[in-house]
Design a protein around this nucleic acid. Sequence first.
DNA 1: ACAATAGTGTCTCTAAGACAATATACG
DNA 2: CGTATATTGTCTTAGAGACACTATTGT
Lengths: 229, 229
Amino acid sequence: MNTSTNSNADHRLICTVDVVLLTLRDAQLQVLLIKREREPFAGALALPGGYVHASVDQDCADAARRVLHDKAGLPSPYLEQLASFSGPARDPRGWSVSVAYVALVAAPQAPQPGQHWLPVDELPQLPFDHGRIVANAVDRVRNKSQYSSLPVHLCAEPFTLPQLHGIYEALLGEPINAVSFRRKMDELGMLEPVPGAKLAQGPHRPAQLYRLRDEYRRTLSLAGRGLNA
Amino acid sequence: MNTSTNSNADHRLICTVDVVLLTLRDAQLQVLLIKREREPFAGALALPGGYVHASVDQDCADAARRVLHDKAGLPSPYLEQLASFSGPARDPRGWSVSVAYVALVAAPQAPQPGQHWLPVDELPQLPFDHGRIVANAVDRVRNKSQYSSLPVHLCAEPFTLPQLHGIYEALLGEPINAVSFRRKMDELGMLEPVPGAKLAQGPHRPAQLYRLRDEYRRTLSLAGRGLNA
DNA sequence: ACAATAGTGTCTCTAAGACAATATACG
DNA sequence: CGTATATTGTCTTAGAGACACTATTGT
């Protein structure tokens, strides 16, 4: 191979995005995996991902949204950059960089053919370094749930405080004091009651429904000292 | 241009690393900028950065260490991935992805020719999107300083608690209760006194010198609820 | 009215801040 | 000894958890 080929291979790299789309089903954090149609690893379950297309994507986040739309059939849920993963061995096609994103959705629509929701704690071996990426994403989400409003993106609006409480508990895997929880949600100031709307769940007092304030739809609200779960 | 060129340009992208090397000088957080020798932006001050070399780098962190060594003449200080920045416009050479890193050093050796330490709060316009990258890095460092041992990497070992205290205060820009600070450092459990070593600074009681425990040389220690500065 | 869950009031306990007391060096 | 900073002891105060009480619905 000649020098120019070499320097080209050296400077222009395989560049992909991978999306860790998480949701809460059966009180478990689950991740969307897609059956790969092409090599490498055709037939295996893997994260939705794909090449970054310089000609169509404005940036990597844009590529992630495109992948999410094309492979998961989703509009734009909460999306946050996780980290980049790189190296010569992670993709058999060669030295590559993958910019990984975490996305959260509330309503896990019935999976289309080829889509699978699997609990993050019971994953099989995944191709590429997707196992590591998922683990990284789960760490981030669990950690951030301790002191931010992140989990609201796992909850379909409008929702009640007891529902949100349950989501925090499922994520953190431990009980959270209900009084403190209400105090925290209150001081985070990100929720507003839906006037008059209550949710009756049985022969007892119905719960007030809340929605996210518009200001917090793209921004998280951070608590001073966590939920101390 | 033909299809294969097109798809090549589309799938193989310009991939660089940029390093935000920070230190504390004159009680100010400062960043290392390098006078660029080549186009684009030759002559301008910019972050040390460069292409990722598939043939020599094991991953992007490796590329960042190489850049740091070549352009800043530094061994491997504390290094942490910050985020990736991408898009068609950030680099005039074309659609690019840059994986940015934050690095921290204690002793700001006298800058070599072409190297400049500038306070992060008084930066000129920087080329590429380096202004944004620095701002992002500074946010991260200041934020993480609130609840972790990160700032010890800005302190030459061994150091005294009053010195470290001063570093935290300089970073966070507000006074920290000295008693709470000691309690926190104690419970973080990352420091060990250097037996018998004290630092006399004048006609008064000298301070105990400490060093970082080996276990925490690469890992940070996290506090339960921050320093509540 | 009863059962069951939603939401509140308030006491307790933990941990952060304030402040004062003690320790130790150099002169 | 006197001074200046290091270090510790302990009181005060803010916020998290526990627990009991009130509120509101369907039956």
